[in-house]
Structure formats: structure tokens, C-alpha cells
Nucleic acid binder design. Structure first.
Length: 577
RNA sequence: UGGGAGAUCGUCUAACGGUAGGACAACGGACUCUGACUCCGUUUAUCUAGGUUCGAAUCCUAGUCUCCCAGCCA
């Protein structure tokens, strides 16, 4: 079975181990997974989920799911629902479900403190003016002309902002740090903006909304998070994260969070530490929410859960098991190096997991008729097949067999290349579980297209007979033509034709690199026991690949299967097929 | 000509002054009633240049390259 124990230690685990050894945070470990509900989760998020929930699990700690919903103009309940579903599907359960918006009152109280302490001010500059005052990467900025307003005036303005007296964008609340800092995040960043819009969680209770940098650290502190794990791009936000925590000093000012207790929300105030790690990127795919959103909105794919999408709902529908995604995250490790993982690593994880967990079935996706001429007309029998070659616990099943069969068209060649182990005119091959057949003759249409093969079955080679031991180089799969169930088979390939679709240096964008052949739908034939399976069951169709009964469209009387991944095929790879 | 971060096989990732190891990929072979799985083997790496040291991926110096930051996004 799949081994999910750590391959090796990583720097974040080491930090946690050291912190516990030093008694930091009283030895507690508390993490959180903080998605913004503005899109669907993707494989990149899976790394963060596995890390955050994994560290908490490993050290007997807690991990919250927290929606970072501080910008109502971009967020939607559709996303908060899908995110919960995806986290659970991946195999994790949160300690508590929180929203940053649960803390809006706390953020506001903290803002009044900052204003009262002379650390924050209300700024009347427009967005363009702020940009002009900010300076550039190499030039210092200038102080806002409103920076020296009195505490009284700032407090009055802040309260009137909250009360809704001002128009969107008319004012912001900013903290006073250093307009000359080399770190632009420290040039008096805004902590509140005015937006008269409904919020998916708080309705119309607020018209001022906090900014990420301000809200995130306070949220972490309020939840008693010990290790706040985030991606590399937040590295130069860390000084700001620490500035807020230091200036607000929640542990020594618990009254700022007093409203939480009234609402029954535990608030074990602490001082969290932000630690950054690199994102998970995959080649032949895009991972930015904006681009994924575009693919969906412009119908370049069939929704967020299109099996070609790197979204968790997409890979789920594709048939990738959650254990494979977890294994991927384990295999890629946790470091601060930017990296792009080869898609084959993911496929390897999927094959490894499915090889162990998927039952075997027979199916033909590109049928060619084969008639066993030495069996009587109407011959019918039922064979017993093992469901898994290495695991008897999977049991056996009955497979109907008859005189007329479907085999895979590519398993027959009139003029075979060297090394072809399958069926050729006058040649022999083993029919899986049946015996050795010899191709005696064939029919073609006017175009030379092969219509059917006439073969004879060597009765001495049926299973159980001594003749069955006869060595033969090839074994092919088949399905009884009279019993086969027609199925829609969806064959997927990578969505993009280039390794780095994000690279637009040649003037082309990711849209120009969409793989037109990434989805192919064919009609195939299944043995009855393959069709009968419930939706979302993963199966190996022998010699073809791993397939999953489509979550939404599959029904036993109208089967629909998605190909998750092909089997490794050293024959095709040799360029012979 | 600002600030922050990172450079180890093709790709990820170990080694914390003492034999550069593992995984995936690739290639070759064994096995096989799945050309699968499994097993065995092979190829390939310390960004550069100096220095310290018996010994450097690791420490020092100077470079080079890559990534991130100028939202009232997260």
C-alpha cells in the first residue's frame, strides 16, 4: 500500500521541532490554511494544505480552515463551499472553520488603538496620488500631507468612515512606518479602504474592509496560530506582519478581541511566526487563479472541474485519487527554491496509488471484430477473473465469453514491425484468460480497412489445462461482443502543448498553447462488470490505463469513463506502436 | 543605481567541515496470461573565481545568474 510517511525532514518541520524543544508557544503547534474564496483550489494549494494540516497532525496540534475574505468585491459563497469540499476530499478535517470576516470588529478595534497611539492616520489622497507619493523601487517616497493630522481628527474620521459617511475610495487608513524604506511594503501601507458592497459573510454590516497584511497577522494572533506558513512572495511582507503584531500587542491588550468571546469564538491570543516556502508548480499547466478563471469563463474548458484542469475538483474528476496528490506533495518536499515539477512525477504518483487500489477490468476502446470459428454458433460461457493480480482481497468476478469478440484494433497488424508481440495473419496470441488463438483469415473493405478477423482457439490452451503453460509472447485483452456494454470513454491529455505556458516572451500567451487534442471522446465496449460500477470508481482497464467512472455523467446503463492516466507503455515509447 | 530571497543530476530533493545520497525521468536487462506491476543494472549534478583547511556543496571574499516587490488584490 501507499507509504505516506515523510521521505525526509524539511526546514519547516525542523523549525517546529526546534521551537518545541525550546518550549516556544508552550510546545503547541497551531497552523491554518487561509484561502481567499475567489476561485477553486488547485494542486498548488494542495501543497499548502498538506503542509499546514500535516504539521498540525504530526505534532498533535490544530489546523484551522480560514477564509481570507477581506475583499468582498472578488469573493463568492460558491468558492467557500467548493473549498471545504476539496479540503475534505484531500483527506483533511479542520479544527475550526473561521473567516477573517469573523474578526472585522477586532480589526476595527485594533485600528482605533493604532490611531490612538499615533501610529495610523486617515489619508485623503486618491489612489493615483498615493502611487505618486510612494516613490519607486529606487527612489524614496514622500509623506502624505495628511500624515500629521491630530489623533482626535483621525479618530473622528475613522469612525465616520465606518459609519459610511464617505464614498468608495475617498479615504484610506494608513499606518505610519517609513516612506523611505527600501521595502515598499513599509511605505505607510493602507490598512483600510472604503467599499460600499455586500460581503458574502457579513452582509452590509461594513463598508470599510481591511487589507491583507493587516488582517492576516491579527487573524493568526487571534487564533493562537504558532506557525503561519505562506508562500515566498510574502517574504518581504514579514517585517510588516511583525510590525503590526508588535504595535498592536494583542496578548497584552485582550480587550481588543473581547467581542469574540461574546460570539463564542475562542481567541487564544498569541504571537505567530510567519515562515515562507516555495509554491508547487507543474509543467504543461497554468496555476494562476486568474488564468484558470479565464479558461472557465471563456469556455476553453468545461468548467472548474474539467478533468484537464489542475484544480482539485478537476483532478478528482479526472480520477486522480487524493492519496496520489498527497504523495506528490510529500515527494516534492518543502524548500525555499522556486521549482517546477515535471508532470510525470504526478502521473507516477497516480499510477502507484491506482495500481494498488484499482480493480482490473477488460475494455476495448478502438474495437476490431474477432470471430472464433472453431466454437459453435451461440457458444456462451462464463469465465472467472481475478480482480487484482497482486491482492486477493479484491476477489474475483465473472466475465462472459463467446464466439464473437471485440479486440483492440492496435493489437492486430497485417504487416507488423520487428518485435510486435500481438496478432498477425497466421500468427498466434493469447487472449487474456481464454487461451491461444491463431489468426486464420481476415476481411477488408474496399479501402483495405480490416473489418474482422477469423481465428481458431487452441482448445488445449484453455486455463487449467497443461497446454495453458505454452509460452507465447503476446497477451491481448478482449470483450465478448454479445455481452459488451457500450460506453462513452473520454481520453484526456495535457491541456497545454508546451512545458511553460506562462512564458510569453515570444509574444504568445498561454491561450496560444492550448492543446487542441487534449480531449477525445470515443465509444468503447466494456465487460458488464465494468459498467456496473458506481460513479467515481477507479478501475484499471487492462493494458489501457486507469479510468474512473465520471462523477456526474456515469450510470450503469449508460457508462461514462474518464481516462486518468495510461499505463506505462514501453512498446509505444520505443516508437513501435 | 532600492529592498527581499534562491542557486546540487533532465526534474525535485538530501548531505549541517569527513565516501555528493534518494525519488521521478531516461537507458539496458530479468520476469510476465496486462509490452503493466515487480526486480536488477547504467548514465548524468555541487553557478564562477579565488581563499581558509589534512579535508569544502558546507566556512570566508569577490563576482554571475534566477525569482519576488512600486494594488485602496491576496
Amino acid at each position: 500500500m501507499t507509504n505516506e510517511t515523510p521521505l525526509h525532514n524539511h526546514f519547516i518541520r525542523q523549525i517546529v521541532i526546534d521551537d518545541r524543544a525550546n518550549g516556544k508557544h508552550g510546545g503547541r503547534v497551531a497552523t491554518r490554511f487561509p484561502p481567499e474564496p475567489n476561485g477553486y483550489l488547485h494542486i498548488g494549494h494542495a501543497k499548502s494544505i498538506c503542509l499546514n494540516f500535516g504539521m498540525a497532525q504530526e505534532f498533535g496540534g490544530r489546523c484551522n480552515l480560514r477564509f481570507d475574505d477581506t475583499n468582498p468585491t472578488k469573493e463568492d459563497v460558491e468558492y467557500v463551499e467548493s473549498i471545504q469540499q476539496d479540503v475534505r476530499w484531500l483527506g483533511f478535517e479542520w479544527n475550526e472553520l473561521r473567516h477573517a470576516s469573523d474578526y472585522f470588529e477586532v480589526f476595527y478595534q485594533c485600528a482605533e488603538k493604532l490611531v490612538g497611539d499615533g501610529k495610523a492616520f486617515v489619508c485623503d489622497l486618491s489612489a493615483e496620488e498615493v502611487r505618486a507619493y510612494r516613490g519607486t523601487l529606487t527612489e524614496a517616497g514622500r509623506n502624505s500631507p495628511f500624515r500629521e493630522r491630530s489623533v482626535e481628527e483621525n479618530l473622528d474620521l475613522l469612525r465616520r468612515m465606518r459609519a459610511g459617511e464617505f464614498a468608495d475610495g475617498a479615504r484610506t487608513v494608513r499606518v505610519k512606518i517609513d516612506m523611505a524604506s527600501g521595502n515598499i511594503n513599509l511605505r505607510d501601507p493602507a490598512i483600510y479602504r472604503i467599499r460600499h458592497v455586500e460581503h458574502q459573510n457579513t452582509g452590509s454590516a461594513w463598508c470599510i474592509y481591511p487589507m491583507y497584511d493587516y488582517a492576516h497577522c491579527i487573524s493568526d494572533a487571534v487564533e493562537g496560530i504558532t506557525h503561519s506558513l505562506c508562500t515566498l512572495e510574502f517574504e518581504d511582507h514579514r517585517p510588516l506582519y511583525e510590525w503590526f503584531l508588535r504595535e498592536i500587542d494583542l496578548p497584552n491588550h485582550p480587550q481588543l478581541a473581547a467581542t469574540l468571546a461574546e460570539r463564542g469564538l475562542a481567541a487564544p491570543l498569541g504571537t505567530p511566526q510567519q515562515i515562507e516556502f516555495s509554491r508547487l508548480n507543474l509543467d504543461y499547466t497554468v496555476m494562476s487563479k486568474r488564468k484558470l478563471m479565464t479558461l472557465v469563463e471563456e469556455n476553453l474548458v468545461e468548467g472548474w472541474d474539467d478533468p484537464r484542469m489542475p484544480t482539485l475538483s478537476g483532478v478528482r474528476r479526472r480520477g486522480f485519487p487524493p492519496a496520489a496528490i498527497r504523495q506528490l506533495c510529500e515527494r516534492v518536499g518543502v524548500t525555499k527554491q522556486n521549482s517546477v515539477i515535471e508532470f510525470s512525477v504526478l502521473e507516477g504518483c497516480v499510477r502507484e496509488e491506482l495500481d494498488a487500489s484499482a480493480a482490473r477490468r477488460l475494455a476495448v476502446i478502438d474495437p476490431l471484430k474477432l470471430v472464433l470459428t472453431n466454437l459453435p454458433e451461440g457458444h456462451a460461457e462464463t469465465l472467472v477473473f481475478s480482480n487484482h493480480p497482486k491482492n486477493e482481497a479484491f476477489g474475483t468476478r465473472q466475465v462472459p465469453f463467446g464466439r464473437e469478440l471485440w479486440i483492440e484494433r492496435e493489437d492486430f497488424m497485417e504487416v507488423p514491425p520487428k518485435g510486435f508481440h500481438r496478432l498477425v495473419p497466421g500468427g498466434e496470441v493469447r487472449l487474456r484468460g481464454v487461451g491461444i488463438v491463431k489468426c486464420e483469415s481476415l476481411q477488408k473493405d474496399a479501402d483495405g480497412h480490416v473489418l474482422a478477423l477469423q481465428c481458431t482457439l487452441d482448445l488445449d490452451t484453455r486455463p487449467g489445462l497443461p497446454g495453458a503453460e505454452r509460452k507465447i509472447k503476446g497477451t491481448i485483452h478482449w470483450v465478448s461482443a454479445t455481452h459488451a456494454v457500450a460506453a462513452e470513454i473520454r481520453l484526456y491529455d495535457r491541456l497545454f502543448s508546451v512545458a511553460d505556458p506562462d512564458d510569453d516572451s515570444d509574444g504568445k500567451t498561454y491561450r496560444d498553447h492550448l492543446n487542441r487534442a487534449s480531449r477525445r471522446v470515443v465509444q468503447g465496449w466494456l465487460e458488464p462488470a465494468a459498467a456496473a460500477v458506481p460513479a467515481e470508481t477507479a478501475l484499471q482497464f487492462e493494458r489501457l490505463g486507469f479510468f474512473v467512472a465520471d462523477r456526474h455523467d456515469h450510470a450503469a446503463d449508460r457508462p461514462v469513463f474518464n481516462r486518468a492516466v495510461t499505463l506505462r507503455d514501453s512498446w509505444a515509447k520505443a516508437g513501435k506502436a
